[in-house]
């Protein structure tokens, strides 16, 4: 059971960082950015790139990659999505799918399809209540928790956060109240890009750097954002950890014992848990578990 909790915290942290970015951008622009998960891929490859050209410590590598991806996200919004959103949210969504494929295609063209490892020292796992945890995983969970807590504090307590929430709640009213919507949207994209890159960097430290590391998270991340109610940051965080827990529980529970035998859900179906939860929630509660907005969002 301890292992389930540890695994869920690690997975939930990654999902939460990405789902929060997705939900923030959706709140401000009413458009679901499929390319959000590629910020993770870009962050991880960005770190590999920084490590290969500059002799700086691992912390600085990560920081440079995260800030660079954040700025890239703003640029992509300004150059691509401002124009596509003028046609419609649907066009922007198709465009974000194209962008997601393009990002991976560019990386594959430049560095090839093989996964890469970050140059990190080997670690010994520690035993916490019967669960095996590496120090990297502990750091991953702690750093994500701090990042998410800071984000929520900024959104709740600062004038900037109030402006972001105002724009998501009612763009016209926010503009009428003198909030600079363009600046707020830029800031939102920066946060989405930077948190996505942070997820990528942490994932790369825990496992490896690969082309599909972002796209493979697409459906669980969307599931978490939708479960939380698109636009709701707290909801996305809660839903991400909940989804991770359900994923790990489903794989651990012996369903065969119900009919007097052994029958586990094969581990290959991990991704399916998210899909099924996603489809069921979309069917019965399209506004999400914690969302207020109904049907058309």
């Amino acid at each position: 059971m301890g292992q389930v909790i540890v695994d869920s915290l690690v997975r939930g942290s990654e999902l939460a960082l990405l789902a929060v970015g997705l939900t923030l951008v959706f709140g401000v622009l009413r458009f679901a950015n499929i390319a959000q998960v590629e910020f993770a891929t870009l962050g991880a490859y960005g770190m590999v790139l920084v490590a290969s050209v500059a002799g700086v410590g691992i912390l600085l590598q990560a920081l440079i990659a995260i800030v660079a991806v954040g700025l890239l996200a703003v640029a992509v919004y300004r150059v691509v999505f401002v124009r596509l959103l003028r046609s419609s949210a649907a066009m922007a969504m198709i465009g974000s799918l194209a962008l997601s494929i393009l990002v991976r295609a560019v990386i594959q063209t430049v560095t090839g399809p093989d996964p890469k490892e970050l140059d990190l020292p080997l670690e010994r796992g520690v035993d916490i209540g019967g669960a095996l945890v590496t120090p990297t995983q502990l750091r991953l969970v702690a750093i994500s928790a701090v990042a998410l807590a800071v984000l929520i504090a900024v959104l709740r307590l600062t004038p900037l956060g109030r402006s972001i929430r105002a724009v998501s709640a009612n763009p016209e009213l926010a503009a009428a109240a003198g909030i600079n919507r363009k600046r707020i949207t830029d800031v939102t994209w920066f946060i989405a890009g930077a948190l996505g890159a942070l997820a990528g960097v942490l994932l790369a430290m825990d496992t490896q750097v690969s082309l599909d590391m972002g796209f493979g998270l697409l459906l669980p991340v969307f599931a978490a954002a939708l479960l939380g109610g698109l636009g709701s940051v707290g909801g996305a965080v809660a839903a991400a950890y909940l989804l991770a827990l359900v994923e790990n529980l489903v794989l651990k529970i012996n369903f065969g014992s119900l009919v007097g035998g052994d029958g586990f859900v094969p581990v290959d179906y991990r991704a399916a848990v998210g899909f099924v939860m996603l489809v069921v929630v979309l069917l019965y509660r399209p506004q999400g578990l914690f969302g207020r907005e109904a049907r058309r969002a």
Binding site: A89, L219, L226, D268, F275, L278, V279, L283, A297
Partner: peptide, 28 residues
């Protein structure tokens, strides 16, 4: 029929999820 309750963007994600589910079943 899923379009009964879902706005366009949600429906799009649901179709992607269903196709991926089918691929997982085919794979496993």
């Amino acid at each position: 029929r899923l379009g009964r309750t879902l706005a366009a963007e949600y429906w799009a994600i649901a179709t992607l999820a269903l196709a991926e589910l089918l691929r997982l079943v085919a794979l496993n």
